[in-house]
Design a protein around this nucleic acid. Structure first.
Lengths: 303, 303
DNA sequence: TCAATTCATGAGCTTTCCCTATGAATGTCA
DNA sequence: TGACATTCATAGGGAAAGCTCATGAATTGA
């Protein structure tokens, strides 16, 4: 047998109270159990810890030394329990995840804000990467999950759609634009347009879908960042071609989105997880927040 | 139930080996026992520690954190065991004890030397105090025992005589002195004498015994320290009146002791211990050394 | 598809653990 | 001084746990 924490618990109690009976009472065990545990510990360590008579229990010098070590171990044990409980309840910890550049800038800020409000002590490590890097990075780094738009299936990675935004024209609430329920891609020609650069995933999806129908987007401006597009749109430079989900209403109150049809394209925002890996409680809480926040933003499939 | 060290041992082994089977083998238990222990620990902490399939055992983030704490506790436990074992075997530790001034200067140095040779890592805290203070200090301080000459009995303190020296005249190996087997107190008048001051315990014992017989010591010199008396004697200033045990033969090779008779007085050197208090292993070792060293110096009761 | 490996689970046995009861020692108070 | 009270140690028995063995399920590699 080996030293046990139970023995140490009794030991420290006896050391402090200088009484086996009192220590036993403190710990909710009988005096005989406490007496036995002390004897075991002494046998284990090969050292007399208390000079005891029926009248007094005096710690030896060895006990003085052992006490410090025992207290440390017990407080370590308690600290471990507490820390794990905090982790379990997502009151502490860290969430490391990946986000595609677009999602990170347009969609996740509000998730982050809400999550931080409810879980102020959790450290957040969001790494924005190119959409193509999501899957390889998720497999290789310590990120627990990834959020972004991906297509296809991947070994060992589960993909779940959190929200899905229809590709829309986003513009100022002007009379002629606001009046429309939707626009066709062809009708876009009437306005100046602001689209993402050809290298971006969003743009590639658009170009591919349009060219399948013999059409083609011919934007007035091309930008790299979603926010740039929105800011330009707010200035009245044109209509931004983006998934509706990418428009933060609170940040750009003057802008509205109108779905583009013929073809109607949707861009999913997915949650990627490594299969067979449990998310940390903190990550689970974050994902839950993301789910609720983003679910409210899903564009209905028809309309 | 609470977290146990056994659980933590299995946990760290699994964490390191990333396999329940291997960890179980390491610890000499069956795979099922290890599996169970891990499940218990998870339940206890409320946290998933490993993502396990039949093929792999992956630590979670919580496990990463727990591992550090667990390792610390286990090494603390091992350190405690080792330290206690060292104490038990008197390979480490501290001996704090009291010694009367005379004993400390004349008798204990050789004990200290021998003890230090056999127990080099034990810290020695010898406090020399007035003989009258031995008992009160022993009760009040953290000294484990005391060595010195005391008379009478004391509550809660056991007294054991380690050696006993007959009061003797100590002088240089001159023809007339060396020829004597013993001297009477009356014969002392033929030589100049060096005695301890009246305030010292030794002197008080002498004066008391002599005056009971209507005699009286009339020393040429009176000193406070035994070593002073011996040094003066070595210079040929006279005969030192001291217990024979107080003469370190190696330090004063020119000096010899001749017992004083009519009356023959002996002065015990005793070991004082608090009743019901175990000596630390280190102290036990020291006392054992003192016993053997001093036993060799006991003046035979007649001669 | 089969064999091999690995983790989880259930049954049963062994060991440990803890409580009750009692004994022994010591201090207290009349 | 003697009865009483308190405290620690120990013995016995029953409950709980811990462990092993056997088996099942899942997954990998030949």
């Amino acid at each position: 047998m080996n030293v046990t924490l139970r023995q140490l618990r009794v030991f420290t109690a006896v050391y402090r109270t200088r009484s086996i009976t009192r220590a036993a009472g403190e710990l909710g065990i009988t005096q005989s159990a406490a007496s036995l545990l002390i004897q075991q510990l002494e046998a284990q360590l090969g050292v007399k810890l208390f000079d005891r008579s029926t009248r007094s229990v005096q710690p030896t010098l060895a006990a003085d030394e052992a006490f410090a070590a025992a207290e440390r171990m017990l407080s370590d044990a308690q600290g471990l329990s507490r820390r794990m409980r905090d982790l379990a309840q997502a009151r502490a910890g860290r969430v490391a995840f990946l986000a595609s550049a677009g999602t990170a800038s347009a969609l996740l800020p509000m998730v982050l804000a809400k999550f931080r409000a409810s879980h102020p002590d959790i450290e957040i490590d969001m790494r924005d990467v190119a959409a193509d890097d999501l899957v390889p990075r998720l497999s290789a780094t310590d990120a627990e999950f990834a959020i972004g738009s991906v297509e296809g299936e991947f070994a060992d990675i589960t993909v779940e759609t959190l929200t899905s935004g229809r590709l829309s024209a986003i513009g100022r609430r002007t009379a002629d634009f606001a009046a429309r329920r939707s626009l066709t891609w062809d009708e876009l020609a009437q306005w100046p347009t602001i689209a993402m650069r050809s290298e971006t995933r969003i743009r590639m999806q658009i170009d591919q879908a349009l060219s399948a129908q013999g059409k083609r987007l011919d934007p007035t401006y091309e930008v790299t960042l979603i926010n740039t597009a929105l800011a330009m749109t707010a200035q009245g430079l044109g209509l931004a071609i983006l998934p509706a989900t990418m428009l933060p209403a609170d940040q750009f109150p003057t802008l509205i989105a109108r779905p583009l049809v013929r073809p109607a394209l949707t861009r999913p925002v997915s949650l990627l997880q490594r299969q067979g890996r449990t998310l940390s409680p903190a990550a689970q809480a974050f994902v839950a927040t993301a789910r609720t926040v983003l679910a409210g933003r899903t564009t209905p499939p028809s309309g």
